[in-house]
Nucleic acid binder design. Structure first.
Lengths: 238, 238
DNA sequence: CAGTGGTCTAGACCACAGT
DNA sequence: CTGTGGTCTAGACCACTGA
């Protein structure tokens, strides 16, 4: 059967991340030193460092030679840009997700932004619309296209308030490993977008076109997002 | 004096990156295997892997277990978002930089977006306006604020067509190590922005607010960018 | 000074891809 | 099957920060 040994550095990463997000470690705190983490978890330094490297890349900690790993302040905006595989929303913001209709199977759009393989084209796609609300106000309108390949019963799932990433991971052993994204500022011309995001026509919206690659070789899915950035910023680290 | 031994993994990274950007390795090519790179450069695998990890993070290569490291296609857009320390523009686009006036020393603005330390506030800042053109069309309008600390003769430098990053690195031993950024889609309300970016009033622009942290502890600088995304997208990888 | 993170070595075993 | 990348160990020396 499928074997999924979770690497040690991943476990440690998840645990430390959770402790930071949950406030066990607070901004400015020092994490246990690398050697302490080694001893605590029976690991060696390269393994511990790999976990810390992931946290560093995502901006949860900053390292200072001779001092230690400092917990960084949490993003004020909404962490979408630099997210890598785990839940999207970072920080104290209150984020909920609402489906628009049910997922449905349909052909791919004709003028799809990303290029598709023959296999993807032939199977059609699962179409999925969601709205994300921050503090009960609509901020994201997200259209997702998944290749209709080996995703049994997907269309009958209820995805309200569930991370798509989590559903894919838990039910289909699919993990997002990376991807690419294109950003633009455009006018909210579309009636649907205005309605969902509570925007007047022609107001500026941030448009995000993303391709998300998964651990299953050749399996990518696509997300097109419109963001009302009147009250929030998208946040990223590098 | 300052000692700056460049790490082996950094050298290897720079060399491989150059070979990819220059087209020595092309899209779809396989890089030499990790063991081959070890032998070629007299390094061990963890060191080689660190260099490859950097390339992976920046999207230059994709790894496939059992196969090798595949050179990824170069960004179609303009690589600003995921840039980490090296020159910004990646790809075949023709990017030039033009100064608007000369750099000048002045007090920090009153309503500065990022919080400033007392030391930064007391020394004032170097103010710097630039326009970036892609294929001779204005795309970015960038306002940069540098703390006026230990940057002798900076205001008399000509920065036309030079990367600010390079100037800081070569002349002041300052390397950008990371940072944070906030993104919004806004209206081009400001007359200056419209003129520089060749935009009608109220057209949507992408607004990027960045804090860039350097290798000199406590030394950060700040960049506020307006992007005309009518013809180009900002590109990012994760 | 003692402790921290930064770099590096020299091995090892495993899972996966192409033959 | 061989070779690839993925993970991990058990050490080592260095440069830096704070006391």
């Amino acid at each position: 059967m499928t074997k999924r040994p979770i690497p040690h550095y991943r476990r440690l990463y998840e645990q430390l991340r959770k402790n930071i997000v949950d406030g066990v470690y607070r901004e400015g705190d020092l994490l246990p030193s690398e050697n302490e983490l080694c001893a605590l978890h029976n690991l060696t330094r390269p393994t511990v460092r790999k976990a810390l490297d992931m946290l560093t890349h995502e901006g949860f900690i900053k390292k200072r030679q001779g001092l230690g790993s400092i917990v960084h302040k949490l993003p004020k905006g909404i962490g979408i840009l630099s997210v890598a595989g785990t839940t999207s929303a970072v920080g104290s913001t209150n984020l909920t997700t609402r489906m628009v209709g049910k997922p449905r199977v349909q052909p791919w759009p004709d003028d799809f932004f990303f290029s598709l393989s023959a296999r993807e084209l032939s199977t059609g796609c699962i179409f999925l619309e969601r709205i994300r609300l921050v503090n009960d106000r609509p901020v994201f309108y997200d259209i997702t296209y998944l290749p209709n390949i080996n995703l049994p019963r997907f269309t009958s799932r209820n995805l309200d308030n569930k991370s798509l990433f989590d559903v894919l991971r838990q039910n289909y052993q699919l993990e997002v490993k990376g991807g690419e994204q294109y950003l633009k500022a455009i006018r909210a011309k579309d009636e649907t977008i205005c309605r969902y995001l509570n925007l007047a026509r022609d107001e500026p919206v941030l448009h995000l076109q993303r391709k998300l690659e998964t651990s299953r070789s050749g399996f990518s899915f696509y997300s097109f997002m419109y963001c009302n950035t009147n009250d929030f910023s998208l946040y990223g680290i590098f």
